[in-house]
Design a protein around this nucleic acid. Structure first.
Length: 261
DNA sequence: ATGACTTCGGCACGAAGA
C-alpha cells in the first residue's frame, strides 16, 4: 500500500500537476495540504474520475487539507481538538479498512509560526501540543497509524542545506524542534530517516525565490510519522524530487512510503 | 538585503507562505 503526502500550494493552481502525478505514481492514499479553497470549490470530480474517494477539510484562501483514497474512508475526524474557536483547517483523519487490517491516516498542515515573538509562533507551539495529545490517544489504539503532512519543522541541521540561514526562523527554533522530537519520542518512526539513515540532502521544500531549487537550497519539512504497528509494515520511503522540475510546480514535492499489504 | 517568487482576493497590491 502506497501512502503519500504533498503540500500543493493551492489545489486549483496545481490541479493538472496533481492529476498527472496521481496517474504516474498511483498511490493508494494521498494526503494534500494548503488547498487554499473551501470544500465546495475543491475539484473533487477530477479525482473521482481517477478512482479516488475525496475527503476535504477546506477553508477560503488559506490552509485546507484533504485525503484522496482508493479505499472508502471511515471514522472521519475534521480538525484538531483542544482550542475553542480555532477555525484554521489544518487536520483531517480517517480510517481505511484493508483486507489485512485497518490503517489510520492523518493529513496535517502544521502552522508556519513566523515571525518569531508573535501570536503566530505561540499558536504553532500550542498546535503542536494539541497534535501531541491526539497522537498519544491514537497510539493507545495500537493500530497502523500514519501522521503525514507539512510539519513546518526542520528536525535537525541535517535536514537543511544551510541550517545557519534558519536560526531565526520558526521552522528551526529549539522549541519547534523539541516539540517535534517529543512527538517522535512517543514512539513514532520518521519514515524517511528510517529508510535513508543520516543521508544528507534529503529535502522536500525549495523556496521559489533566489534560485533555491537550482542551488539545491532546500529543507525537509514534510514528514510521515509511523506508529510502531505501521513501522513494522514499512517497505520503502522516498522523496519525489522530480516533481519540482515541472512547469508551475508547488514549492513542496510529494513524499511517498510503501507499507506491506 | 526587511530582496528575490507564487498564490489569493479581486482588479491593486498587501498578506502569507517558509
Amino acid at each position: 500500500m502506497k501512502i503519500a503526502t504533498w503540500n500543493v500550494n493551492s489545489i486549483k493552481a496545481r490541479l493538472d500537476n496533481a492529476l498527472a502525478w496521481l496517474r504516474q505514481a498511483n498511490p493508494d492514499i494521498l494526503c494534500l495540504q494548503e488547498l487554499k479553497c473551501e470544500d465546495h470549490a475543491f475539484p473533487a470530480q477530477a479525482f473521482e474520475e481517477l478512482g479516488y474517494n475525496v475527503l476535504v477539510h477546506g477553508q477560503k484562501t488559506y490552509n485546507g487539507v484533504a485525503i484522496l483514497s482508493k479505499l472508502k474512508p471511515e471514522d472521519v475526524t475534521r480538525g484538531l481538538a483542544g482550542e475553542d474557536g480555532d477555525s484554521q483547517a489544518r487536520y483531517l483523519e480517517a480510517v481505511f479498512a484493508r483486507k489485512s487490517g485497518v490503517v489510520r491516516v492523518a493529513s496535517i498542515y502544521l502552522p508556519n509560526g513566523n515571525p518569531l515573538g508573535t501570536e503566530k509562533f505561540a499558536y504553532k507551539l500550542r498546535w503542536m501540543d494539541r497534535l501531541q495529545a491526539r497522537a498519544k490517544a491514537l497510539l493507545k489504539l495500537e493500530e497502523p497509524l500514519v501522521l503525514a503532512g507539512d510539519y513546518n519543522v526542520i528536525p535537525t541541521p541535517l535536514d537543511a542545506r544551510h541550517p545557519e540561514n534558519w536560526t531565526n526562523d520558526a521552522l528551526f527554533q529549539p522549541e519547534s524542534r523539541a516539540k517535534f522530537r517529543t512527538l517522535l519520542n512517543l514512539g513514532f518512526t520518521d519514515a524517511i530517516r528510517q529508510v535513508h539513515g543520516d543521508e544528507p540532502g534529503l529535502y522536500t521544500f525549495w523556496d521559489y525565490q533566489a534560485g533555491a531549487w537550482q542551488r539545491n537550497n532546500g529543507i525537509r519539512i514534510d514528514h510521515l510519522l509511523l506508529s510502531p504497528q505501521a513501522a513494522d509494515l514499512l517497505k520503502s520511503a522516498h522523496i519525489d524530487r522530480e516533481v519540482r522540475t515541472q512547469e508551475k510546480p508547488s514549492d513542496h514535492v510529494p513524499v511517498v512510503i510503501e507499507l506491506k499489504a
